[in-house]
């Protein structure tokens, strides 16, 4: 972190204590630097940084609607090309998991397909937190949310996460990566690398939400780290369609990740349901080759 420089997402905003998205958004914009224009989707990040008449952003920033940050960024990029300024200015579109994987997916697909020189950053806190923890397409399997509640005949969200990195990759774009707020140098390196490549880029950052996941605000980074080390959030990097890097892990049991979060508490009465989540982790470990040498997967 460039702690000696003025942060480009200033302190004093109104995010909750321990908000993973607030930390990640600051890391992203600081890695991008001051010659950056951001188009932001509606969501927590927009609300807690720009309540009129204040703004925490030290770079030019625009919020239009929930689902159109990729299209607004496309207009900004086109304008910069017209002005002959695209070479010196980064354009970032960013939103939450709902704004990206659900309502904004069409606009993102259009942006990726057009080949425009834009980095899209999805801050994945795995539900619609700004409206009160409703499920999204990136809510994990068996997670208890306000619209996928665990009940006497339900264990919560019935589907696994939508494979957004693969969907982005299928557009044939030059760079796709996942990252997490838990590993700061990796996140900032990926942002810098993405911005050094011309064309559309997609980075998905795992960001715990203490309010929505129901954990203590002091546990944000620890939980984000556990998501990676259990194999539930693979940290992967693709360049020109090839997997060029994964974060190797010594796999921990998924209970290590689930136990400190209220959204998974109901599962601990049902070991079979936890087993299903372990199967998802094992599948990830095998699919991406996450296990460090000589480490059998769980």
């Amino acid at each position: 972190m460039n702690s000696e420089k003025k942060p480009l997402l200033a302190p004093g905003h109104t995010a909750c204590a321990g908000c993973g998205q607030a930390i990640a958004a600051r890391l992203v914009v600081d890695a991008a630097g001051p010659n950056t224009i951001i188009a932001n989707s509606t969501g927590c990040l927009e609300v807690f940084t720009t309540k009129y008449p204040e703004s925490a952003w030290e770079i030019p920033w625009i919020h239009s609607l929930f689902e159109n940050s990729a299209a607004v960024a496309s207009g900004i990029e086109a304008a910069l090309r017209y002005l002959g300024k695209k070479e010196t200015i980064n354009v970032i579109a960013q939103g939450g998991d709902g704004g990206s994987a659900d309502i904004g997916l069409q606009a993102i697909s259009g942006m990726l397909e057009r080949g425009q020189d834009i980095l899209y950053v999805c801050y994945d806190n795995e539900a619609y937190m700004n409206t009160g923890v409703q499920r999204s397409g990136l809510t994990p399997f068996n997670s208890n949310t306000s619209t996928s509640p665990a009940g006497s005949v339900s264990y919560g969200n019935i589907r696994p996460k939508k494979p957004m990195p693969e969907i982005a990759l299928a557009h044939g774009i030059p760079y796709v990566a996942t990252a997490t707020v838990a590993f700061v140098p990796d996140l900032q390196r990926k942002v810098k690398k993405a911005l050094s490549i011309r064309g559309p880029k997609y980075i998905q950052v795992h960001v715990p939400c203490p309010l929505g996941w129901r954990h203590g605000p002091e546990l944000t980074l620890e939980i984000a780290k556990a998501a990676v080390e259990t194999g539930l959030y693979p940290i992967i990097e693709y360049e020109n369609g090839s997997l060029i890097g994964v974060r190797k892990i010594t796999p921990r049991p998924v209970e290590d990740y689930l136990k400190s979060q209220g959204r998974f508490r109901h599962l601990f009465k049902n070991p079979e349901e936890i087993k299903k989540i372990q199967d998802i982790a094992n599948n990830n470990i095998q699919k991406y080759g996450l296990a460090a040498a000589n480490q059998p997967s769980q």
Partner: peptide, 11 residues
């Protein structure tokens, strides 16, 4: 949304 963004960028 594209023209919203481009006008906001001054074009």
């Amino acid at each position: 949304s594209v023209v919203l963004g481009s006008v906001a960028a001054g074009v």
